[in-house]
Design a protein around this nucleic acid. Structure first.
Length: 394
DNA sequence: TCTGGGGTCCTAGGACCC
DNA sequence: TCTGGGGTCCTAGGACCC
């Protein structure tokens, strides 16, 4: 019998309930219990065990609602250090199969196994080997979608969950895709789904069969042709092992939701300083600088605005980012507006050594830059909690 | 006590330059 | 007196992903 995966070199591997599985893998007492991994009082569900999902708990649901739905659930905080370690080990396991590994997040990746056939077998056999290895080495399960097209493999892994494999051969792509709700497509979220439904386009098949021009008039040229390709499983996206040291992130940012909404300028500025320090600290570790500073504010009614300013030169200096954020904040002239969240992001990142500091700024900024490096050194020796700007000492 | 925190990409208008 | 286009940069917002 021929293996249906023979013309399906793309694997999408997705850990099952990753955060919850990692949190409970050394806790046999919790294995069949509803477990929710999530943040603090105003947080959302990051991951729910399958026992918790039986009660309707889902990722991204407010924690308050999740607790109401499942009062006896065990609630755990995420351990990002551990999650990062498990993720790195899993990705390493993928790279033993092929160098063409594209990590999408901590817990999922595309693999192009075209070159591994001679060594390891068919894509389906490789998928099963990977699942067994990850289970043995990491004590967690995963699901794998196998297809000839990236976007189809992605949907197939979801259908395979939990702890399964689904192969969608080329001749079965349309019969697999077309009955699905349009909201299942990768890139179609709540808003686009609602818009398509309003147009009478409910299933992927509906989107596939509407004339491209009509679709483009309704949703725009770019999204229209993209949706058409997704609906026919003809997108040409390839698996690229990327984001090496030579390709930095495009932006870095940090934001924080207050425990309670605030209209106190002092509280806001203190938070902006802490966020600026966090972001620029990460930038210095990564060796990047950026020119555009963006301030993000979310008000009590959840409306969100951004204000940005592009500097003449890239920077990784805490005080420079902080001062820019404060200027943007003050320029808004808010009068007792209650803020729920503030954020700071630096965009347009480039390797730091490509930045030419202007001489005119050199004198003043040099001092702050030196201060940052001293803080970084101290943080490495004593931990980041030991070193912080004086105004953050309470 | 509804709604986190980290990102990416796209669109659209205005400024500015040629 | 009447109004071209193309390209790039900047800003703001929004959709989406995990």
């Amino acid at each position: 019998m021929t293996d249906p995966s023979l013309r399906c070199p793309i694997l999408h591997v997705d850990m099952d309930a990753f955060y919850a599985s990692v949190a409970t893998r050394d806790r046999p007492d919790l294995h069949d219990r509803p477990v929710i991994v999530g943040g603090g009082s105003r947080g959302v569900v990051l991951s729910a065990s399958y026992a918790a999902r039986l009660h309707g708990v889902r990722s991204a649901m407010p924690m308050t609602r999740a607790r109401r739905m499942c009062p006896h659930a065990v609630v755990l905080a995420p351990d990002f250090e551990l999650l990062g370690q498990v993720s790195a080990a899993v990705m390493e396991c993928f790279r033993r199969v092929t160098p063409l590994v594209e990590a999408l997040s901590l817990d999922e990746a595309f693999l192009d196994v075209r070159g591994a056939a001679r060594r390891l077998g068919t894509p389906l056999e490789i998928a099963e080997q990977l699942r067994a290895t990850i289970h043995d080495e990491q004590g967690i399960t995963c699901s794998v979608g196998v297809a000839a097209v990236v976007s189809v493999a992605k949907l197939a892994s979801r259908r395979a969950k939990p702890d399964g494999v689904l192969v969608v051969p080329p001749e079965e792509i349309t019969s697999f895709l077309h009955p699905l709700d349009v909201g299942e497509l990768w890139g179609v979220g709540e808003k686009t789904r609602a818009m398509l439904h309003r147009l009478g386009l409910v299933t992927v098949g509906d989107v596939a069969h509407i004339p491209l021009r009509t679709l483009q008039r309704a949703v725009g040229a770019g999204l229209g042709s993209h949706l058409h390709e997704l609906a026919w499983g003809t997108d040409r996206r390839v698996v690229t092992a990327r984001r090496g040291p030579d390709e930095p992130d495009r932006s870095m940012g940090a934001d924080e939701t207050f425990d309670r909404d605030t209209d106190d300028r002092e509280v806001v500025l203190r938070e902006l300083l802490r966020l600026s320090a966090r972001v620029t600290g990460r930038m210095r570790v990564a060796g990047v600088a950026g020119r555009t500073v963006t301030l993000k504010l979310r008000f009590a009614d959840f409306t969100t605005i951004t204000r940005s300013r592009t500097l003449p030169e890239g920077t990784d200096v805490t005080q420079e980012v902080y001062r820019t954020a404060v200027r943007l904040y003050d320029a808004l002239g808010l009068q007792r507006a209650r803020l729920r969240l503030v954020g700071v992001r630096v965009e347009g990142l480039v390797p730091r050594e490509t930045v030419q500091r202007q001489l005119v700024l050199g004198e003043r900024e040099h001092g702050w830059s030196e201060a940052d490096r001293a803080v970084d050194r101290a943080a490495r020796r004593f931990g980041s909690a030991a070193v912080r700007p004086a105004s953050l000492l309470s």
